[in-house]
Amino acid sequence: MIKLDAVTRTYGDFTAVDEVSFTARPGRVTGFLGPNGAGKSTTMRVIVGLTRATSGSATVSGRRYVDLPNPGREVGVLLDASAQHAGRTGRETLTIAQRFMGLPSARVEEMLELVGLTSDESSRRVRDYSLGMRQRLGLATALIGDPGVLILDEPANGLDPAGIRWMRGLLRDFADRGGTVLLSSHLLHEIEVVADDLVVIGNGRIVAQGAKSELLASAGAVVRTTEPLVLAEALAAQGVTSSYVGEDGLLAQANAEHVGRTAFSAGVAVLELRPADGAGLEEIFLQLTADTQRDAASQTPSAPHLEGALA
């Protein structure tokens, strides 16, 4: 179990991680989703103690990570597959981890076989590895200590489609046998296949979290209209909350028929109207991803609304 409680990390005036709280539970794969620069990696570094939190706390299995006696035996960590000494062979890289953890040396070969690195490949220097091979080596390093918790930052990067499917199977299997998996990605589709829970982060803040099934089945309708402001007010007058999606869209917390009738009586022209069916999550995510410029994201009042709508 991984538990974050109001973790904040600032760099001068810039708040990279802003009051982030969530729990990754045993037996479940928790997808940590957000566009590049949203604060995923900083949050993960805070969990494993590589970055100090400005405030708030993070625990793994009920303890601060730095208080774990031999962290590699309890938590498998892969933060950046490219962060390996380029002049060391893959097998040697794994041997170093095996020695730090005090494991039998046979574990090295077991892990190489598990992640599908051949004897020839493992004898090469990491400098000559493709990103996919580095990911496999990093995953081997994370798994070698037989941990109960996995923390993986963008592990699917650089893997081919077969590799991605293989990794999903591995993580599913790990969680099904009681393990906790925290897995980050900037691609919704990559993560929604394997995740049980989702935590969505944008500009350092959590914008949605919960069971994937709930988030994807979230009620509501997406409507595009020429006058979103008028429709939003008309909906609000009936006690229906809504939030902006893109330029001319609204995500309303009511079914499509209700939204249609409200638009009709308000005299607003509707361009598109459909049940949300998880589109809400995707819309949030697309919007977050589109607004990579931080100032653009803060112009629209929608982000706080969305949190209320989906959290």
């Binding site: 103690g49 590589l50 730095v66 962290p71 590699g72 950046d80 962060a83 390996q84 060391r88 981890a97």
Partner: peptide, 12 residues
């Protein structure tokens, strides 16, 4: 070489 990311995770 950024190997500290692994080293300091294994020995915090």
């Amino acid at each position: 070489q950024r190997s500290g990311l692994t080293t300091f995770a294994l020995v915090p």
